[in-house]
């Protein structure tokens, strides 16, 4: 039996855990003049990862990195660390999202060490939607550290020490990002963003952008930060979805003109993609990349990238 296994192993190619040598990493691309494309992958609610992995497969070679969400909207799902590792094994570059909601400083640090040891190179921190808005509303919300304190902690970990100052056996090497909304008329949101940059955030991914005028003002505001801004986009699927987002998603402002276009469209899904491609074209002039967060799967994402002239990575 042992002999058979040895022979068999000769024919089994190990899955690539490391990206091809010549390809720039996401972190290296941040420091280049390349327009960056990232996309969101949601872990399954259950142990069947096939849908998430096939969703990622659609994006292979078309995006620079995949954000793996962390119990998004406080709905319990598989750990982004676990799905992130599976996506690495499939040859994707991963940005592991991590919220402050579910873990205290011990758990966060141990997950950061685990992520780094498993080969995850990028991490994106955020407060996280409150537990009361999710599917376990009675869960204890943790928020032991806020996102600013979290970024500060990881900077310390990168120098080889944990939160308490104990020496680490090997420091994590991670590109650290954070999130922001893009309404420059909200002074407290902008103050928080400024703090994230001060603490050393290396990239910022934003809430979905529809209002280019507002985003241009935001870009002006962030000009002096010297941090790459990756603008979030969500293709609209219907006029009603746009109205829903305006009313329920903080920081999202779909202009009336776009809602009218969606209302009048024969094929609203296609119109949504056209609008999104137009938005991306305009964003190319004002920021360093786009972050694709379609509702549901990425089936239309390759088409969207083609329409936006971003299909070749």
């Amino acid at each position: 039996m042992a002999g058979n296994r040895t022979i068999l192993s000769m024919y089994l190619k190990p899955k690539p855990a490391i990206l091809p040598v010549m390809q720039l990493t996401f972190g290296e691309k941040l420091n280049s003049n390349k327009f960056i494309v990232t996309a969101e992958i949601t872990p399954p609610k259950g142990v069947d990862t096939s849908a998430a992995i096939s969703d990622a497969q659609i994006l292979k070679g078309k995006v620079d990195a995949l954000n793996v969400t962390d119990n998004q909207r406080a709905v319990m799902r598989m750990s982004p660390l676990a799905l992130g590792k599976l996506l690495l094994d499939e040859g994707h570059e991963v940005i592991m999202q991590m919220t402050c909601r579910d873990r205290n400083r011990l758990a966060i640090q141990s997950d950061i060490l685990g992520a780094s040891a498993l080969g995850i190179q990028n991490i994106c921190f955020m407060s996280g939607d409150h537990t009361t808005n999710g599917d376990h509303p009675g869960a204890k919300p943790v928020y032991d550290l806020d996102s600013i304190q979290l970024i500060s902690m990881i900077q310390k970990m990168k120098t080889g020490f944990d939160f308490s100052g104990n020496e680490l056996e090997g420091a994590p090497e991670l590109v650290v990002g954070a999130v922001s909304n893009t309404d420059p008329s909200q002074p407290m949101q902008m103050m928080k963003l400024e703090k994230k940059v001060r603490m050393g955030a290396q990239f910022i991914q934003t809430q979905a952008v529809y209002d280019i005028g507002q985003f241009e003002k935001f870009a002006e505001f962030t000009n002096h930060f010297d941090v790459p801004i990756i603008a979030g986009v969500i293709p609209l699927r219907s006029a009603n979805a746009a109205r829903f987002m305006n009313q329920n998603i903080p920081g999202v402002n779909v202009e009336e003109e776009l809602i009218t276009r969606m209302d009048n469209a024969d094929d609203p899904v296609l119109e949504g993609l056209i609008i999104c491609a137009e938005t991306i074209s305009m964003l190319k002039k004002t920021c360093r990349g786009v972050h694709l967060m379609p509702i549901g799967q990425h089936l239309n994402t390759p088409k969207l990238l083609e329409m936006a002239g971003l299909s070749v990575r």
Partner: peptide, 14 residues
């Protein structure tokens, strides 16, 4: 603050 955040609001404020 529902999240007890010490360094500014979360993105959920509307």
């Amino acid at each position: 603050c529902a999240k007890g955040l010490l360094n500014g609001p979360c993105g959920g404020s509307m």
